[in-house]
């Protein structure tokens, strides 16, 4: 892994530390906003149909990114609110918390967005997201039968992901 050198490459499953089942759902978007993967483990409340839900989630992330890029107190020159930002450009965010859930967000340099929704008391999940990104690289990108930009239909990836998220503390 060139971009995230610190994290483990081999997609071997770590031993689950806690028996907590904290994961609510996961989204993976590509840079065009296509939802490559959506999985849910625990979602009692559904306000919209899945297509609308994915669009709303992508829109929320897009707008929050332009909000943080504009609000960034560390630089004076930030351009206008809402100018399109390339991945890694401008100040982004890594998580937000409400009273009922915590959303962790990671964007790879190629624009792959990984969103993990967990219990609000979850700890910092940045490393876990990098790990999930590595799973994506190993099981999806390296799969010769996978066409980039299409929804992921890999059982191996899904089961590995389920197992990993179940093991998250």
């Amino acid at each position: 892994m060139q971009f995230f050198g610190s994290s483990e490459i081999s997609p071997s499953i770590p031993v689950p530390t806690a028996s907590g089942n904290n994961g609510h759902m996961i989204y993976i978007f590509n840079r065009n906003g296509v939802c490559l993967l959506y999985r849910e483990w625990n979602r009692p409340l559904r306000t919209l149909d899945s297509n609308q839900d994915h669009k709303l989630m992508f829109g929320l992330l897009f707008s929050l990114k332009s909000l943080t890029a504009k609000m960034d107190p560390s630089s004076a020159e930030k351009g206008n609110l809402g100018v399109p930002q390339l991945p890694g450009q401008g100040c982004s965010f890594h998580s937000f918390r409400t009273n009922t859930y915590k959303l962790s967000f990671m964007e790879s340099p190629s624009g792959i967005k990984i969103i993990l929704v967990t219990h609000p008391k979850s700890s910092d999940l940045r490393e876990s997201l990098k790990y999930i990104y590595n799973l994506y690289v190993e099981y999806v990108v390296k799969n010769p039968l996978y066409t980039p930009g299409t929804p992921i239909k890999s059982d191996l990836f899904n089961t590995t992901l389920d197992q990993y998220v179940r093991g998250l503390g």
């Binding site: 609510h24 918390r97 009922t100 859930y101």
Partner: peptide, 15 residues
């Protein structure tokens, strides 16, 4: 929100 009773973002952690 995946569960009901959500009152919106309380903390946003940016870079």
């Amino acid at each position: 929100s995946p569960v009901s009773g959500c009152t919106g973002i309380e903390l946003l952690e940016a870079d």
